[in-house]
Simulated scan of single mutants.
Amino acid sequence: MKRALVIRHTPYEGIAGFRQPVEAAGYEIDRVDVTAPEFAATDFLSPDLVVLMGGPMGVYERDAHPWIEPEIAALAERLDRNLPVLGVCLGAQMIAAALGSPVYPGPVKEVGFAPIELNEAGRASPVRHLAGVPVLHWHGDTFDLPEGAELLASTTHYAHQAYRRGRELLALQCHPEMGEDERFAEWIEDVDYLALAGTDPNAMRAAHDANGPRAVAAGRRVVAEWLTGL
């Protein structure tokens, strides 16, 4: 059986809705938390697939999070070998950093369910399944598009919502894995962050209930098609 390694940057941001298509594609899933003692010895090269999930920290907060620098270095080595990598939100930003692009605060806190805007390349990619679907956004950072990467989707405030490089790399700034995971309750406990984005826990809970199942279904189709193409 193939092996997928999920890198968790915080316990409440796991593989969530993407677990189903990854397992259906024949992968056994292992997980490691970046704060666990064993993370320092994690092998990024042997897994058939590495999945990098989100987190509340910024890639540039390296003094506060000493695991960021070695993770970027290990990820860069995997990417240099064109081994399959899927990144979500912070994961997409870590990939950009590993490919040599700066990551920095964006213009606004983009939080809530809203569709992304696909370009021509996006409509010809697995991301096409997200067309017109409100998916979860939860970020305030952005990055320059890495050299050699192909942009797939944008939003009004954030130009780089999805990108890929060849068949092996897919990066999503949004969270189409979220919509049915009970850990969302922990996300909306951050009332101050929600206030900065102009929303609140009740509004987010209602949006989650209304849009979550459709968003996850679309996200699963994206990942299933991407894995098929590897």
Rank of each mutant, 00 (worst) to 15 (best):
K2P: 09
R3Q: 09
R3Y: 01
A4Y: 03
A4V: 00
R8I: 02
A16W: 02
G17R: 06
R19S: 12
P21E: 04
V22G: 01
E23V: 01
A25W: 03
A25T: 02
Y27K: 02
E28C: 14
V34K: 10
A36N: 12
P37C: 10
E38I: 08
F44N: 01
F44A: 01
P47M: 11
V51M: 12
G54L: 12
R62T: 15
A64H: 11
A64P: 05
P66V: 01
W67D: 01
A73G: 13
L75H: 02
L75P: 01
A76K: 12
E77Y: 04
L83S: 08
L83R: 03
L83G: 00
G87Y: 11
G91D: 01
M94F: 13
A97S: 09
A98E: 07
P102H: 03
G112M: 07
F113R: 00
A114Q: 11
P115W: 05
A121S: 13
G122E: 03
R128Q: 12
R128V: 09
H129M: 11
H129V: 12
L136P: 06
G148M: 13
A149H: 07
E150F: 06
L152G: 00
L152T: 00
A153N: 06
T155N: 09
T156N: 13
T156A: 15
Q161P: 06
Q161A: 05
A162N: 07
R164D: 08
G166Y: 06
Q173A: 07
H175C: 06
P176C: 11
E180A: 13
D181E: 11
E182G: 10
F184R: 02
F184E: 00
E186F: 14
W187H: 08
I188V: 14
L194C: 07
A195T: 13
A197K: 08
N202E: 15
R205Q: 15
A210S: 12
R214P: 00
A215M: 09
E225C: 09
L227H: 01
T228L: 14
